[in-house]
Design a protein around this nucleic acid. Structure first.
Lengths: 202, 202
DNA sequence: GGGACAGTAAACAGATCGGTTTACTTTCGG
DNA sequence: CCGAAAGTAAACCGATCTGTTTACTGTCCC
């Protein structure tokens, strides 16, 4: 057995590695993955290219790390935000709260739509590790919604979850395209109709 | 007044220009816009780079032409397909037929989702001409749906059109991500619920 | 005090990027 | 017959691409 290391809070990321990821996140999201070179990331992070390759190995791996961290943030933030805003409410309230949360998330930091959908548009190689992260993210959201649907007493929770997921994606895309003034309000209405149809009235 | 030219069917595109656009369409859609260079397009089209720049002027202009042609095809195909499949039916039937048409379109040639949404992910410069084409396309679909909603006697045609548009986009994105087995069926169910709510029963 | 680790600085590699230029050929309508 | 348009072929431009290499400096822990 390996000896247990000292219990100091070990930073998963070195300071430089964190700065790299921060810079990469901003640049990838706002300018596109392919359009951003590692030289630019290095410059922005105040770091040498060597450090990037020492920490991440390749640009593809850095892209995967970028998506992974974005996923982690979303997974911790969304349930917390739902609990915060729908505290004391029903499961149905929580489901509707996910749409308000979506609006908050987008207004706050994501004017260009879903980083995963955008990344999927660029990561055309099906073998790219980032594609796995993207698929995982959508499956997580679907199962989170499904869990809420079960608790809301939906007739067919799986089907309702699919419907809600579709509405989420539609709202996010329209938000990013600025093609419709207030897509999140539209999505909330659609969700209400879907809930009604599934027998979730409480 | 300028003299009317001879009435020969003038080809809007020279043969080489057409081959260039064909090659660009396949490559841009399947590999991404930024990831594809003009040298590759030239090679695929059996053409010199000079010809590309003689015909289109810049890569950005070629990208806009690619989106424009894709838009044109969609605008002629969709109404025709809807008339074909919902011939003799009601306006409500036509609305639902747009979702079947979407499935046909995607199965046929667009496994990677909507070319416009994908392009929007890459065209980060708000001044890029392609962004106008994208916005126009969404507005066209919205007004096409809105027209059908009016004829279907919707309580609030504009709002219903927004809802249907959102469902369309959601279905397309989920289709491209392969995150849900049959997003188009899900979208049809959602559309039925939305129509019901808007009072369109015929 | 010595090694492992994290980092800087900067050159280097070969390929590719969008775009231009020069010189020559083919086709076709007035 | 002549000139314009459409095209090939290929070299060239400077910049940028992902990724590697060499040499050196801190810092921290055993």
């Amino acid at each position: 057995m390996t000896t247990q290391a000292t219990q100091t809070v070990r930073p998963r990321l070195t300071p430089a590695a964190r700065r790299i990821l921060d810079a990469a996140e901003t640049l990838f999201y706002n300018r596109g993955i392919t359009a951003v070179g590692v030289d630019l990331i290095a410059r922005r992070a105040g770091v040498t290219k060597k450090t990037i390759y020492d920490r991440y190995g390749s640009k593809d791996a850095l892209v995967a790390a970028y998506l992974h961290r974005r996923d982690e943030r979303w997974r911790t933030w969304l349930p917390a935000e739902v609990e915060r805003t729908a505290a004391g409410g029903s499961a149905r309230d929580r489901i509707l709260a996910t749409f308000d949360a979506l609006a908050t998330w987008m207004d706050g930091q994501s004017p260009r739509g879903c980083s995963f959908v955008n990344a999927a548009a660029e990561l055309t190689d099906p073998g790219h590790e980032g594609r796995r992260v993207i698929a995982d993210q959508k499956h997580w959201l679907r199962s989170y919604l499904r869990d809420l649907c079960v608790r809301a007493g939906a007739a067919d929770p799986g089907l309702l979850a699919d419907e809600l997921l579709l509405i989420h994606e539609g709202a996010t895309v329209l938000y990013g395209l600025s093609a419709v003034p207030d897509p999140v309000t539209v999505s909330r209405r659609l969700a209400e109709a879907a809930l009604l149809r599934a027998g979730c009235t409480a």
